[in-house]
Design a protein around this nucleic acid. Structure first.
Length: 552
DNA sequence: GTTCCTTTGAAGGGA
DNA sequence: TCCCTTCAAAGGAAC
């Protein structure tokens, strides 16, 4: 688990983190995101087809070397989340325009007083109002009118998989932790007066949310508890995508004992008594409720035990048992959680559909996140792992090995699939000049040798080795079949001052002419320029050079 | 219909 | 300890 350096001294340096998204003005943020998305789009479009495993690996290594997020100790993290919420509440109560934090839901981990969102007189407490407003921006919560965030795009409109209008900014990072397929829920219907107004994704007409979109996690009792949709119900409805596939037949209350009433801190760490963590067979808890991480082979449509190599199988269970054995998915890591949350937003901004491209953008944005922001996801991931381990004590990631379709391994430099011609590519590295992240992750690594990579490293992830950092980038190949013909001519953009630490040659990034964006050939916009200037000299302009991509 | 792509991080095994 | 491999999500593209 990554540990952020304790509050005061963020001596991890690196004020080169991209913070511009956080506390800037709303307009500025929007501009920033649009610009970044635009650049990301161009970037990705131009680079996606070019990349190959080795290049990716190099890029990855550089990314990894560049910065390792730090998380604070839990207590401090929680304190900060409290502060987040307090600040949000203050803003709201001050009558100011409530601007949700970048990850507005996160602070709800420590949401105070959720166990009793109502005041004694029956009205919602301010905190509960704030929560509800964050949860359901369209919900008219008394006393909080006008705090709807109209800024963020509504991926729900744009994503064909988002059944509920939900601002990306209001998607709690923990949402994927407990999001399940809507189709399998039959939760209680919240009272109409508290039902968020939801736009039908197809008609755009406001409608009462389907019960499945609300609070399926709350084992609402027939009585009082059911009188209000539980504040944490929104955990369930992120993008209509379950984090874990649901076995046939669905389930009613995932994490049944996960009665998320008070704080999410106890959600995963203390809500599970030992007796309930033992996964009953067939994906069902003892309550008969399957865990979302359990995927029925039928649903998963993954190779059955027959396709699993014997080495992958545990010697103990028989083949039949193996077939019956549910597929327990790995818990999502921090980046995966981030991806799930941000994908729709990126898709909306970039009008990109290709996940590979989206993921590239997300990867960059991930690196552009501040440590605090990343720490949130690391914390969530940690909790998820903790929950997962408690639910499935005997589970090992190794159990899933071989349950996927076998992937070809082409990463090895010398391994080339027979009969497949390869095309040499120009060395590719994502150019931070084109990236949305002024706080170049690459730059921070390359320009800040004093920053110990270990200090920046995620506790769970080993710091990049010296060999990794110094590993020279080389020309790599990619199967020609995936190459796009018009990508041949390209522009090489030198990547800053890379040579200072290694013998890495000037890195160039092929950019198809057809994808060239004006921003690539013209000075950065004032905003971007300022952002660039405020961070690194890495971004000092260097002349663009035209190169011709070698072709075979 | 299946596999690949692409990202980061976690985990496990081998050297 | 280090390195490598696999898998987790996602969905269009390629095969």
């Amino acid at each position: 688990m990554p540990q952020l350096n304790g509050g005061g001294g963020d001596d991890l340096g690196a004020n080169d983190e991209m913070i511009s998204f956080k506390d800037e003005g709303e307009q500025e943020e929007k501009i920033s995101e649009n610009v970044s998305a635009e650049r990301d789009l161009d970037d990705v479009k131009s680079s996606l087809v070019k990349k190959n495993p080795k290049q990716n690996k190099q890029t990855k290594k550089i990314y990894q070397a560049e910065r390792r997020p730090q998380t604070r100790p839990d207590s401090e993290s929680y304190e900060k989340t409290r502060d987040y919420f307090g600040e949000a509440l203050r803003r709201q109560q001050d009558g100011g325009f409530f601007k949700s934090p970048h990850y507005p839901g996160y602070q709800f981990l420590m949401f105070p007083d959720l166990t009793n969102p109502y005041l004694s007189n029956g009205s919602l407490s301010p905190s509960a109002r704030t929560y509800l407003q964050m949860k359901w921006p369209l919900l008219d919560v008394p006393g909080s009118a006008g705090i709807k965030d109209s800024r963020s795009p509504t991926p729900g409109h744009l994503s064909n998989k988002v059944p509920v209008v939900q601002h990306a900014h209001h998607v709690h990072p923990l949402t994927p932790l407990i999001t399940y397929s809507n189709e399998h829920f039959s939760p209680g219907t919240p009272p109409s007066h508290l039902s968020p107004e939801i736009l039908d994704p197809k008609t755009g007409i406001p409608r009462t949310p389907h019960p499945s979109e609300l609070s399926p996690y709350y084992p609402l009792s027939p009585g009082a508890v059911g009188s209000i949709a539980h504040p944490l119900s929104w955990f369930m409805q992120q993008q209509g995508q379950p984090m874990y596939s649901i076995p046939p037949g669905g389930f009613r209350h995932p994490y049944p004992t996960l009665a998320m009433n008070a704080s999410m801190s106890s959600l995963v760490s203390s809500r599970f008594s030992p007796h309930m963590v033992t996964p009953p067979p067939h994906s069902l808890h003892q309550t008969g409720i399957p865990h979302p991480a359990i995927v029925s082979p039928a649903i998963k449509q993954e190779p059955s035990g027959d396709n699993i190599s014997p080495s992958m199988k545990s010697p103990v269970p028989s083949k039949k048992e193996e077939d019956k054995k549910p597929h327990i998915k790995k818990p999502l890591n921090a980046f995966m959680l981030y991806m799930k949350e941000m994908r729709a937003k990126v898709v909306a901004e970039c009008t990109l559909k290709e996940s590979a491209a989206i993921n590239q953008i997300l990867g960059r944005r991930w690196h552009s996140l501040s440590r605090e922001e990343q720490a949130k996801y690391y914390e969530l991931a940690r909790k998820e792992r903790q929950l997962h381990s408690q639910l499935y004590p005997g589970w090992s990631a190794r159990d899933n090995y071989g349950k996927r379709k076998k992937r070809k391994r082409e990463n090895k430099p010398d391994s080339k699939p027979e009969g497949k011609s390869k095309k040499q590519c120009v060395q590719y590295l994502p150019s931070e000049k084109m990236c949305d992240s002024p706080a170049s992750s690459h730059g921070s690594m390359l320009d800040s040798p004093a920053t110990p990579s270990a200090a920046l490293a995620s506790p769970a992830a080993p710091a990049p080795t010296h060999s990794e950092q110094a590993q020279p980038l080389s020309l790599t190949t990619k199967p020609e079949g995936r190459m796009h013909h018009h990508f041949s001519p390209s522009i090489a953009i030198p990547i800053g001052t890379l040579g200072s630490q290694s013998s890495t040659p000037i890195l160039t990034r092929p950019i198809p002419f057809t994808s060239l964006h004006h921003s690539m050939l013209s000075p950065p916009s004032p905003f971007h320029q300022a952002a660039l200037h405020s961070h690194h000299s890495l971004f000092q302009s260097q002349p663009l050079s035209l190169v011709t991509k070698p072709t075979e």
